[in-house]
Simulated scan of single mutants.
Amino acid sequence: MKAILVRELGGPEKLIYADHQLGPPRPGRVIIDVHYAGVNFPDTLIIQGKYQFQPELPFSPGGEVAGTIKEVGPDVTDFKPGDRVVSGTSWGGFAEEVQGFAFNTHHLPDEVSFKDAAAVLMTHGTVIHALKDRAKLKPNETLAVLGASGGVGTAAIQLGKIMGARIIACASTDSKLDFCRKLGADVLHKYTSDNIKSALKDLTGGKGADVIFDAVGGDYTEQAFRAIAPMGRYLAVGFASGHVPSIPLNLPLLKSASLTGVFWGNFFRNFPQENKANIQELLRLVASGQIKPQIDQEFSLKDAAKALIKIQNRAVLGKIIINCRDN
């Protein structure tokens, strides 16, 4: 089969389009014929050796795929060849076939296309875990979303609205904010690290945001935390800015606020049943049309490096996917 391979850690220019062999499925695994793979910010980190989990070389990036089951491991009973599925793989997805975890592979409703499934699993799976399990977001609360036009940001707008929250979308350009408005954001803010504290205060009548969803990090984090409401929940989701921030611990103390980590990879590994319930709910929302995946661009498998460059340049509105059958 063909795959995008990392044989040497580095940027997208180091990726190789080549033949690769998977071998038979291991216990607890399934082999999936990949139709589409989602592209996410962690893919830009794992190819550089900067992600929380690192596979041995050589490997393929790509943490989410949609396709059909080709083979199952000797102990797998929930799936059979031909089943339509979506799967969180952590890596390996930029390929014609991938060996996925059975516990994070999910049957795909007939109403959900492979393309849409590949565009929502990791982003919306992260967000439903963040807002439901970690923040316990309530109707009529204010949710401020930093990096609102990206993959997890757009998912936070969509799921936050479904959960009944008032959404403040924060992004860096007018075009990104216009995109967020079309998704249903209630309030728009073009931010810098210097104006986010005052803006969030002003936009909430001085109270501050009940929940802040931060996938950006860097210089924005402390200033945003200073604008959190009493008893608020600050969700640390990622660091697209490239800088992992730190904040004075007196800030959560003075606000009686929580600083809460969100790492979907840890969640689906350690709480597979709870994750499966979340993903089933997510797929029902996609099947019913309540969630509409926002696909910015589709690339062929051999052009996967171009997709990662676009992610690195923060030039994506919504999600990028790879057509692993278009070679």
Rank of each mutant, 00 (worst) to 15 (best):
K138D: 10
L121D: 09
R134F: 03
A102L: 10
S149G: 04
A130W: 00
V145Q: 13
A118N: 08
D110N: 14
L143S: 09
A117P: 06
M122R: 15
L137K: 07
A144Q: 11
F103E: 15
K136A: 12
T105S: 03
A117S: 14
L137R: 04
H124Q: 14
N140I: 04
T142M: 02
A117R: 13
D116T: 02
K132F: 04
G150N: 11
K115T: 13
P139R: 01
A144L: 10
V112E: 14
E141D: 08
L108K: 13
P109H: 01
G147M: 06
K136Q: 15
A130Q: 13
R134L: 02
D133Q: 15
D116K: 02
K136S: 13
S149P: 00
T105G: 07
S149W: 00
H107N: 06
A135P: 07
G125S: 07
L146S: 07
G147S: 03
E111I: 05
A119F: 00
L143N: 14
A119N: 13
A135T: 13
H107F: 00
A117K: 04
A144Y: 01
E111S: 02
A118T: 06
H107A: 01
A118K: 04
E111Q: 10
D133N: 15
I128T: 09
T105H: 01
A135K: 05
R134G: 10
G150H: 10
V145Y: 07
V127A: 03
L131A: 03
L143E: 08
P139Q: 14
G125N: 05
G125F: 00
A130E: 01
G151L: 02
V145R: 08
K132N: 09
G150R: 02
H124P: 06
N104P: 02
D133F: 00
S113W: 15
T123A: 14
M122D: 12
A118P: 10
K138N: 06
A144R: 12
S149V: 05
D133H: 04
S113K: 12
A135I: 06
A130G: 13
G147E: 13
T126D: 15
A130D: 14
L108F: 07
L137D: 04
F114M: 03
E141S: 08
G147W: 00
A144M: 03
T105W: 05
H124F: 05
H106E: 13
H124A: 11
L137H: 07
A148F: 06
D133A: 08
T105R: 10
F114D: 13
K115D: 12
H107C: 03
T105Y: 00
